[in-house]
Each structure stands twice: as C-alpha cells, then as structure tokens.
C-alpha cells in the first residue's frame, strides 16, 4: 500500500505543479508593466485599437476569472482562437502535436536502447576505449548547439551523400515509410543530443551500485565482471536508469523546438516559435501548456517508475 500512496502523492504533486505553471503561463503576463494589449500593440496604438484588443482578449474581466474561464475551456478541449488567423487553436495544434510526438518517439526508440546498452558496456569495461570515448562524446554534445549537429548531418547525409532529404516535409496521408525517411535526420540529431548524457548517467548509476559491499562479495565469489554487472548490479541500478531515461525524454521535448525549426518540420515547437514572432499570445499559451504537460508528466513518471523499481520502496508491502 506504501507504493500506491507514493504514486498518488507524486501524481497529485505533478498536477499541482502543472496548475502552478499554467497560472504562471497565463497570468505571468499580469506581472509585467502595462497590460497585454498595450504591450502587443506598442507605443503608437490608438485608444480605439487598444479597446478592441482588450475586449478580444477579455482583459476587461478580472484576471482570476479569465484564468478560470481559460482553464475550463482547456479541460474541455477548447484552447481559444488564434489572434492572427482567428481559427480555433486546437484544430491547428493537434495534427502538429501528433507530428512532434512522432519525431520525439522515433528519436527515443533509437536513443534509449543505444544509450542504456552502451552505458552498461562502459560500466563493465570501466576506463576502456568505449568509456573514454563516451566521456569525450558527452563533452562534445553538451557543448554543441542542436543546430550545429543538424547542419553537420545535413551537409554529410543530404548535400554530400544525398541519402536523405535535408527538409523534413510531411503532409497528411503520407505513407509510414516516407514519413520515416523524411524524419530520419531530425531524429538522428535529437538522438545525438541526448544519447551521450543518458549514456554517462546510466554508467554512473551502474558504477554507484558497483561500489556496494554485496557486489564486492559477488566478485570475491569469483564471478566474472560481466556477470556481476548484469545479474547483481543492474537490477538495483535499474531504478536510477529509468529515471535518467524519463528525464532525458523530457529534455527531448525542449530540444525538439530548435530541431523542428532547422528541418522546417511542422510540429508544436515550430508553431510556437512562429506564434512568438507574430506575437499571437493565445497560440503561444496553448503551445506552452502542451510542453508543460509533456515535461511535467515525464518528470512525474520518472519519479514514480524509479520508486517502482526500487526494492526498498517495495519492501514494506505486506508479504
């Protein structure tokens, strides 16, 4: 029952955080000097134009009522209308969300097994070639901006070799394999961006368990290093590793913004950047909320999975 209580508490905390963030996303604009309408229209706005925009944004009602009204709409799938096009945001956002999830999922399917596998190998042969290579690689990927990795891949695989398209053009009704072909380069970029960090953290979690007395006992029994790592250390390192994976998937959600812009991929990130440059506030808020749900959701999931995989939390369950 202990574990169930933990899950409920942690999930409730996640929802609470999400609420706090949504208040900040929606009402954070209140803290800024002036009101949203005058900020959007600039210094030279006529009083009439200001009044129209204020009415359109509903700025004449109190802030907390506006927030509750917005939240009520969001819960019922109504994200409001775009300021620039006047169309409902949900209709534009949902297909793009599907695209973003497809890209992030594609990257995750490559990155997670690769990083966890190599991380464990690096831990088995601590100080070996793979281990040292991975530490150099992680310095590089921490220091390289996403667009640098993207352009290197584009120059190599699209311009020079001509194997893959340099723009990730996707459209409705596109075949699955065509879609895979179009999104391979952005997915590779995202993989490279997260893989090294995930690998290092997997290695560290495994090595942390390796220093405990029971692992030393396993060594003293005469077992091979491979066997000790896989059968003795790994089961206990699994909790932290799962947390690491979920945490990095959350990072992927943000990394996707820049990568989508590089490859002109029609996802939520690109929509948000477009909306920011057009100063289309309701669309930006909707996109921000989508990212918040994904980010906080994955972080909450990371905590819960880590607890599920940890025998110490399972131990107090009645046998």
């Amino acid at each position: 029952m202990e574990i169930l209580r933990f899950i409920v508490t942690r999930a409730a905390l996640g929802v609470l955080t999400l609420l706090a963030v949504s208040i900040l996303l929606y009402l954070g604009t209140q803290l800024l000097p002036g009101d949203v309408a005058s900020a959007l229209l600039g210094q030279s706005a006529t009083p009439e134009a200001l009044a129209v925009l204020r009415a359109k944004l509903g700025l004449n009602t109190p802030a907390y009522l506006r927030y509750l009204h917005w939240l009520w709409g969001v819960v019922h799938g109504n994200l409001g209308s775009s300021l620039t096009t006047g169309t409902p945001i949900a209709g534009v956002l949902l297909p793009r969300l599907a695209n973003t999830l497809f890209l992030a999922g594609y990257a995750a399917i490559i990155a997670v097994p690769l990083a966890v596998g190599l991380g464990i190998l690096a831990a088995i042969r601590e100080g070996g070639i793979l281990d040292r290579l991975s530490s150099t690689l992680s310095l590089a990927t921490i220091s390289f901006p996403e667009f640098f990795v993207s352009y290197i891949l584009i120059v190599v695989f699209a311009s020079q070799l001509g194997w893959l398209p340099s723009l990730a053009t996707v459209y409705g009704g596109m075949g699955f394999w065509n879609r895979i072909d179009a999104t391979t380069l952005p997915a590779m970029t995202l993989t490279l961006v997260v893989v090294a960090h995930m690998l290092r953290m997997t290695r560290t979690s495994t090595l942390a368990v390796m220093s405990s007395p029971y692992v030393e006992t396993a060594f003293l029994k005469g077992l091979s290093r491979t066997r000790v790592v896989l059968n003795h250390a790994l089961p206990n390192a699994l909790g932290p590793i799962i947390a690491v994976v979920a945490l990095n998937l959350a990072y992927l959600v943000v990394g996707v913004v820049v990568v989508e812009v590089v490859f002109v991929y029609p996802g939520v990130g690109q929509l948000m950047v477009d909306a920011v440059s057009k100063r289309d506030l309701p669309t930006v808020q909707a996109c921000g909320l989508v990212f918040a749900v994904a980010f906080i959701g994955l972080n909450t999931l990371a905590d819960i999975l880590a607890a599920l995989a940890n025998p110490r939390l399972r131990g107090s369950r009645g046998r």
């Binding site: 955080t17 948000m272 990212f291 980010f295």
Partner: peptide, 21 residues
C-alpha cells in the same frame, strides 16, 4: 523557484517574448 524549475527556461522565455517582443 520550485515552480520555475518545473519548466524548461525556453518555454517561459518564449512566453515573455510573445508579450514584450
């Protein structure tokens, strides 16, 4: 700080830029 830490900086920053330019 906990609330601000719960979100990537990029998302909040984009939000501010949408309002203030």
């Amino acid at each position: 700080v906990d609330v601000l830490l719960a979100m990537p900086i990029l998302i909040f920053a984009l939000m501010v830029f949408a309002v203030l330019g």
